[in-house]
Computed example of a mutant assay.
Amino acid sequence: MSTFRVQPATTCAISSTIKHFGFTLRFPQKNCAVFRRPRNLSIMAASTDPLEICVKASVIAPNKPGDCPFCQRVLLTMEEKHLPYDMKLVDLSNKPEWFLKVSPEGKVPVIKLEEKWLPDSDVITQLLEEKFPDPPLVTPPEKASVGSKIFSTFIGFLKSKDPGDGTEQALLNELSSFDNYIKENGPFINGEKVSAADLSLAPKLYHLEIALGHYKKWSVPDSLQYVKSYMKNIFSKDSFIKTQALPEDVIAGWRPKVLG
């Protein structure tokens, strides 16, 4: 994987260039870090060039992805499938012109597949599964929605100013339901192996842990031992550690929603 942090103005560029829509992009050397990983030979046969993906940049540290759980979901998918990729880090507070040409709405993640730039983590991960089916990450339809309400109830509790409005209990209900499910079906949503549903949920649980810990001094109760074990297991995976946002980025990212 090679990582590029893209800024709108610079006089220092790496020697190679990338062309998009008839114009040439040059990326700044001073904020450019290159990472390499062993490539799976079967994947190389299907795709010799790294996939280009644009994700939110950290506001805290150079050459680190920012606090977008949907971006991390896509990065996790590529890591778990051992796909080589070029990660382009975009400052969303000062979006460069080239980025707005490939993502007119200014949203991330966007990925280049078969010469087309595609948005939306749902669409991207589905297409990655279709194009690179090995190793499979498909979650059976009857399990795909497990834990899907946790993120929205987390946001409701995080934004709440009234301790008695029921938002904490709503979150606890969803976490309890997930705890019971993992107890009977775990350690992951589809059993022994990580699947697409885990890669969608895990970044959201990471945000939950950090944001609620910081803003509400709240943590998942010890009684929900299977939720805590699930989080520990998936947060310790190499693919997760490699793609996670810094805690400071997560805290900064949620600040406007908490403070209004």
Rank of each mutant, 00 (worst) to 15 (best):
I53W: 00
F35V: 15
S47M: 11
P119N: 09
V90K: 00
D67L: 03
A57K: 04
L128S: 02
E52W: 06
L92S: 05
P84E: 06
L51W: 02
M44W: 12
E115S: 05
D122A: 15
A61T: 12
C54G: 01
E52S: 08
W98I: 13
P119S: 06
P38D: 06
L118M: 03
P65Y: 02
R39I: 14
V74C: 08
P104T: 04
D86Y: 12
N63I: 13
E97L: 09
L128K: 02
P38M: 06
D49P: 05
M44I: 13
A33Q: 15
V102Y: 06
P109R: 00
K112P: 00
L113I: 10
P62Q: 08
P38T: 04
V74Y: 03
S47I: 12
C32T: 15
N94A: 14
G66K: 01
K116T: 03
E105T: 14
P38L: 07
W98L: 09
D91K: 07
N31F: 15
P104Y: 05
T48E: 09
H82R: 14
N31Y: 15
F99T: 01
V34S: 11
K30V: 13
K30C: 15
T48Q: 10
N40S: 10
W98Y: 11
P69Q: 05
K30M: 15
E105P: 07
C54Q: 00
C32F: 15
R39M: 11
M44D: 12
D86Q: 14
E80G: 04
I43Y: 08
K112R: 09
D86M: 12
I111M: 11
A33L: 15
M44K: 12
E115Q: 05
R73C: 13
G106A: 07
P109W: 00
I43G: 04
E105W: 10
S58Y: 07
L127M: 12
D67G: 06
T77H: 06
W98K: 05
D91Y: 05
A45R: 13
V123C: 11
Q72S: 10
V123S: 14
K107F: 04
S121E: 08
L75H: 02
C32I: 13
L113F: 02
I60G: 05
V123N: 14
I111R: 01
S58W: 04
T48R: 11
E115C: 03
G66I: 04
A33E: 15
K81A: 05
S47G: 08
P104W: 05
T77G: 03
M87T: 06
V59Y: 09
C68Y: 02
N31S: 14
V59W: 10
P69F: 04
V90P: 00
D122Q: 15
V74E: 04
I124P: 00
N31G: 13
T125H: 02
H82V: 14
D86S: 12
S47R: 11
